[in-house]
């Protein structure tokens, strides 16, 4: 069963459009200095991309939605460790970043096992 979706995406697009208008007004004042304009328009593009993702995700949703909840988040912790190693690699030497491969690999392996496949809980709605 399909249902009207996209009101959430509309909020994102509307907000992005308001920012686009403000960025366009900035063009009048800052045409000689393109850097602020580039920064602002890139941010608008980012918001627009998120809006498209929300729209597509909403359209592909079907009723009744099955909620698949991961039972644990060990992979998230490993991702955090990898992130910390990469950050410390910047401080103490790039070689440290190589060690980030191990938690990343382990996180990738664990990520698949952490989700339960079944149980459906009706959730979500956009009317």
């Amino acid at each position: 069963m399909s249902r009207p979706v996209g009101r959430g995406a509309l909020v994102v697009f509307g907000w992005g459009a308001l920012n686009a208008v403000l960025a366009l007004v900035l063009v009048v004042y800052s045409y000689a200095d393109p850097f602020p304009l580039i920064v602002y328009f890139l941010a608008v593009a980012l918001i627009g991309t998120f809006g498209v993702a929300v729209l597509l995700a909403g359209r592909h949703r079907v009723e009744p939605e099955r909620l698949r909840i991961a039972t644990r988040s060990t992979s998230a912790g490993l991702l955090g460790i990898a992130g910390a190693l990469i950050a410390l690699g910047f401080v103490y030497g790039w070689w440290l970043m190589l060690f980030a491969c191990y938690p990343l690999l382990l996180a990738a392996v664990l990520a698949r096992k952490e989700r339960i496949g079944g149980g459906g809980i009706a959730a979500g709605g956009d009317e």
């Binding site: 909840i69 991961a70 988040s73 912790g77 991702l79 910390a84 950050a87």
Partner: peptide
């Protein structure tokens, strides 16, 4: 939720 939890870990380690 795991992405959210990864966010927490990155914040904490940061």
């Amino acid at each position: 939720p795991r992405v959210t939890m990864a966010g927490f870990w990155l914040y904490l380690f940061g």
